[in-house]
Amino acid sequence: MSGDVILDVRDIMVSFSARRAGRKYRVQAVDGASLSLAEGEVLGIVGESGCGKTTLGRTIVGLVRPDSGTIRFNGADMIGAGSSSLREMRLKVRMVFQDPNASLNPRRAIGDSVAEAGDISGFFKTRAERSAAIAATLTAVGLNPAFADRYPYELSGGQRQRVGIARAILPTPSIIIADEPVSALDVSVQAQVLNLMMDLRDQLRLSMLFISHDLGVIGQISSRVAVMYMGRIVEHARTRTVLDQPLHPYTRALVAAIPKPDPSKRILGAIEMGEPPSLFTRPRGCAYAPRCPLASDRCFVEVPNLRSAGTDGRTIACHNV
């Protein structure tokens, strides 16, 4: 199903400066992440809060400037691109945000929000063409075209997120970076929006980077998944492989901790897995070592690099498995 590599991200480093207790710190939010995305493919990025998954997504759409690393879209460099080619590329690489309440302007009609990217790029030749495109896009995401004249407060949460998706697919994108697009929604609405995203993936042959903390949601929509922990990708494999046979100790903990909706499979009581270290006091070696049941001396001094493990392209960053 997947074709050529459409997005190639190499060795991205992103850090922020922060001040705490009068001292200046550099917080390394993304620490050398690499991934690639094929045409029509959905890659999931999973991790807990603070692991850098959102920063990585924002870096790819150009909202955050990386310290180093390369991002290539269809072979063309995105970071060093001139403003006109960058503008063109940005129309192709679009983002869906987590909170549709915060990402929609409450004082703009839905139709204007949906058409914004097209307006800026001069995509629409006539007013009639613009209205037709808005109506078609709203229909594509399962909304009544009459919503174009309504305002965000008139819509439910699920409908607003459909608007968030509509504004990311007009005009014709190639890649959607979806940052926790269903996390703010109730489970019955979440299923509707996930179905919509799968339909769009198939109809428009969209590639997606689907960022989420929820492995259940990732398992539904993505064919491969990258697991992030404190800025680094620690395991990267096909989604089924990760869910059925997680290899990295962190991935194992993450899979084990999913509350399964089955009272006969209770996990409570047995699990004591500690807490992640503060981003200000990153351990010297493997960031997971302080919580890891398999940690050896080496783990506390040497950062493990991603290496290939087993068949079907699984990579893992761990000294001990």
Partner: peptide, 30 residues
Amino acid sequence: LFGKPRHHYTRGLMDCMPSRNSGARRLPTI
């Protein structure tokens, strides 16, 4: 409740959870 839900809403809530449907082509919805 989880073995034998009797209300249609309870059943619907369980059905649309991604983790109960892994691998399914589409999620059932309410």
